[in-house]
Design a protein around this nucleic acid. Structure first.
Lengths: 155, 155
DNA sequence: TATTTTGACTATCTTTGACTTTTACTCTTA
DNA sequence: TAAGAGTAAAAGTCAAAGATAGTCAAAATA
């Protein structure tokens, strides 16, 4: 028997494997009751085991009928997305590299032409940020958030 | 099954979609009876889901012959985008305002949900720009460029 | 020391109900 | 009969209660 955290991790992964939709929705409180622990333990598991790097997306809603949704995303090893995610995780990205990735994303039909143009317009808009370090950082940051959105709301 | 609030929201939107006049008139009390809740629940739904920023106008009258009228404000894509551009040029485009505009564009079906989330992620990404003046300026600049893309590459 | 577990405090969203205001209608009364 | 008073039938307001989830740092454990 390992830690509580890994039991919960396994449980969620089992649920995910069984789910036809590719994602699961749980009640944080219910789950914590099932494992007889505090609710924030669930957050700990999600933060440490269901990260983007590991191929998971987590969304949630508070209040009545609240939920936590965990989604498994398929990122092919060594593919465009995994390269992109890795570069983004390093923190920043220059304009040419970003433009290249956006074009490739469109070529691979991961985004539409219009979406690619929308994303490129961000790069141009950022030219007005004076400091190059800051500019590259913000560019990487925005790109990262955009990728998450694209994965969350895949076509 | 979602919340009561979203059931009522959906019901009203369905009625609106069916209505030829572009607006609907309901009795607050009747509606609350239909959904077996207190009347003020209807106000909650109207206040949170049928706001001006989302493109709805709500009017009402009390007393005998009282009613609640909900109207969808019709606006053209060009109209909405030029309002946006005007606010940007006046420098009054803060983050929340921008977010509402983007959501409105989606609600009006001028952009897809995915595109709206893509645009919103720019707003969040820009939070890392320290200086508020700079941040607002860059946000406006990017938004402006995005709008041009939307106009150019019409769906 | 690094990881895990816990709990106090906070944030967000929804639902409810007591109390207030407005309006149409009816009933008096000069 | 016109003006005013009273009444019932709406709708509005607002704050409290309820239902979730998130954050963060201290404590416990490996």
């Amino acid at each position: 028997m390992g830690t509580l955290a890994s039991s919960i991790e396994e449980y969620l992964k089992r649920l995910l494997a069984l789910s036809a939709s590719g994602y699961i929705e749980i009640r944080r409180k219910e789950l914590s009751q099932k494992f007889q622990c505090v609710p924030s333990q669930v957050n700990y598991v999600l933060e440490t085991r269901f990260t983007l790097e590991r191929g998971y997306l987590v969304e949630s809603k508070r209040g009545g009928k609240g939920f936590v949704r965990v989604k498994k995303i398929k990122i092919s090893e060594g593919g465009l997305l995994s390269m992109l995610l890795e570069e983004i995780s390093k923190g920043s990205m220059n304009k040419e590299r970003a433009r290249h990735f956006i074009q490739r994303l469109n070529e691979e039909k991961f985004i539409s032409y219009r979406e690619s143009k929308l994303m490129e317009s961000v790069l141009d808009g950022l030219d007005a940020v004076e400091n190059e370090i800051v500019r590259d950082f913000i560019r990487g940051r925005i790109l990262g958030k955009m990728i998450i959105v694209l994965l969350k709301h895949d076509v």
